[in-house]
């Protein structure tokens, strides 16, 4: 593991024990996040983004379970920690921001207390200090009038303000890593833009690493340094944001980028044919094969290897198997 790697996920596999055969929601997923880096995890609904995030934090509930893998964070395997040690990691080591701030915030607790709570729980501040810290954090996330707002309840805030509060909660203990699961999906575009600006600024001021989960490639282009593309539980391509947008290697990534409307009025859009696969009925080989315009006969025989295209760029596709330097990690 390179010295500047903060989080290294290796072969993470999470299944749901429903029905006759377990549903593999996260399938042999590996990626690294370096210090100060933002990794964008992009994919369609059901591709396994949220389950990946929950698995890292060991928040997957039965019938789900992590079946295999390692999650190395600051040199420790989180999957091997005691529950007590893991509680220390959540909040103090890794902050979490959800898509729906209203569901994640306690509706009957003033926002100031929610922000300060983890400081008190982790023994980092007294109740009195926690309140002052909450005001500071509200100011940091650009809430106007933080001294007043600290005593508000979540329902008194707009959607964008609630997401700022969520971010303040996540940042309270100054964790080195924040996981944000679709943090702007429920927001208006104008508010989304403000939150993305804020995320970028927080990254700098708090020297954060960020795992940013989204289904929107636009959001990725705005904030991420590197991108991992998920399809049907697997990472099918990973690389620097510029490489992924300029020279996508996987046919699915190519299709996603092409389907973004950027033409002028009246032009047809470039669509990916077919439907998003059902995890319970995956084809035997490449999960994208039924929709892939470049499909070969061998694609349907076995799951394609994870091919390293160059030092920082890999894709799971047979088209690159010949050219690449063998299987990835």
């Amino acid at each position: 593991m390179a010295a500047d790697v903060l989080l290294s996920v290796q072969g993470l596999t999470t299944v749901f024990d429903v029905g006759a055969t377990p549903l593999v929601a996260v399938n042999d997923v590996s990626f690294d996040i370096r210090k100060g880096e933002t990794l964008g995890l992009v994919g369609e609904s059901g591709s396994g983004k949220s389950v990946t995030a929950y698995s890292l934090l060991r928040l997957v509930q039965p019938p789900g379970r992590v079946a295999a893998g390692r999650v190395l964070f600051q040199g420790r395997d989180l999957l091997a920690l005691s529950e007590k040690a893991m509680c220390g990691v959540r909040g103090a080591g890794i902050g979490l921001v959800f898509q729906e701030p209203m569901a994640a915030l306690n509706p009957v607790m003033r926002v100031g207390r929610q922000i300060g709570e983890s400081l008190v729980v982790h023994g980092l501040a007294s109740t009195r200090q926690a309140r002052d810290r909450a005001v500071e954090l509200l100011r940091a996330v650009k809430i106007v009038d933080p001294e007043k707002r600290v005593d508000d309840y979540p329902h008194q805030l707009s959607g964008g303000m609630r997401q700022r509060v969520m971010l303040a909660v996540a940042l309270a203990c100054k964790p080195p890593l924040v996981i944000a699961d679709e943090p702007t999906t429920a927001l208006d575009v104008t508010v989304q833009a403000q939150i993305l600006d804020l995320l970028r600024e927080m990254k700098r001021t708090f020297d954060l690493s960020l795992l940013l989960i989204t289904h929107d490639l636009g959001v990725i282009a705005e904030v991420a340094d590197r991108v991992a593309v998920m399809y049907a539980g697997r990472i099918v391509e990973e690389g620097p944001v510029r490489t992924i947008f300029r020279a996508p290697a996987h046919p699915y990534t190519q299709g996603l980028l092409a389907s973004i409307p950027h033409g002028r009025t009246g032009e047809r859009l470039v669509a990916i044919d077919g439907v998003v696969p059902n995890l319970a009925h995956l084809p035997p080989g490449c999960a994208f094969a039924p929709r892939c315009p470049s499909r070969l006969a061998e694609c349907e025989r076995a799951v394609p290897p994870d091919v390293r295209i160059d030092e920082d760029h890999r894709a799971r596709c047979v088209l690159h198997a010949a050219a690449g330097a063998g299987a990835g990690r």
């Binding site: 369609e44 609904s45 289904h215 929107d216 490639l217 299709g255 996603l256 389907s259 973004i260 409307p261 009246g266 047809r268 859009l269 470039v270 669509a271 990916i272 044919d273 439907v275 998003v276 929709r291």
Partner: peptide, 14 residues
């Protein structure tokens, strides 16, 4: 709708 499906429906509408 999913991103990859949006374009299909928009094309159909057109």
């Amino acid at each position: 709708l999913d991103v990859s499906i949006q374009a299909q429906v928009i094309n159909l509408l057109m």
